[in-house]
């Protein structure tokens, strides 16, 4: 693709990062649905290989965990408009209802508080907007791998 990266918006850059990315996000086929400073949404296409219960074809909870953790990571990138040096401290997820088979799953995450060293996020996974299948809160450490880190304060 002949794109000048300088003309891309930050959201477009994030979308490209996911598309050309590697690792688990690529293995799951995650895609960026939308990204603003307020909220970032990722999409996970339905795949049989991600089922956790072959009797019901419900997705494995771990897939939802990975989707939500990724949405939180991308939400932080949208918030800071950079690739922050982050590490997940904890992630708590309530699984509200099983995912319906054969339908894509979305996860939307928002950064609701940032301190000099910690970011607090909340996220939901859903198949229909407004009807969450999982609700999550997460905390991330900023400057996880560097001794000094200057977080851009909101």
């Amino acid at each position: 693709m002949d794109v000048d990266p300088k003309t891309l918006t930050w959201a477009e850059k994030l979308a490209m990062m996911l598309e050309t990315g590697q690792g688990q996000a690529k293995a799951l086929g995650l895609a960026l649905e939308s990204a603003t400073r307020e909220r970032t949404v990722l999409r996970l296409p339905w795949q049989e290989k991600l089922v956790g219960n072959p009797a019901t074809r419900v997705l494995h909870g771990g897939v939802i965990t990975t989707l939500i953790d990724s949405a939180c990571g991308y939400s932080l990138m949208s918030y800071f408009e950079s690739l922050p040096d982050i590490a997940t401290l904890d992630l708590r997820i309530d699984y509200l209802q099983p995912a319906e088979p054969d339908r894509d799953v979305f996860a939307g995450a928002e950064v609701y508080k940032v301190t000099s060293s910690i970011a607090f996020l909340r996220a939901t996974a859903f198949q229909t907007e407004g009807d969450p299948i999982a609700n999550a809160v997460a905390t991330f450490m900023l400057g996880a791998n560097a001794p000094k880190y200057n977080a851009r304060q909101g």
Partner: peptide, 8 residues
Amino acid sequence: HGGVVGAL
């Protein structure tokens, strides 16, 4: 991936 650790 942190999510994969959670899945494990």
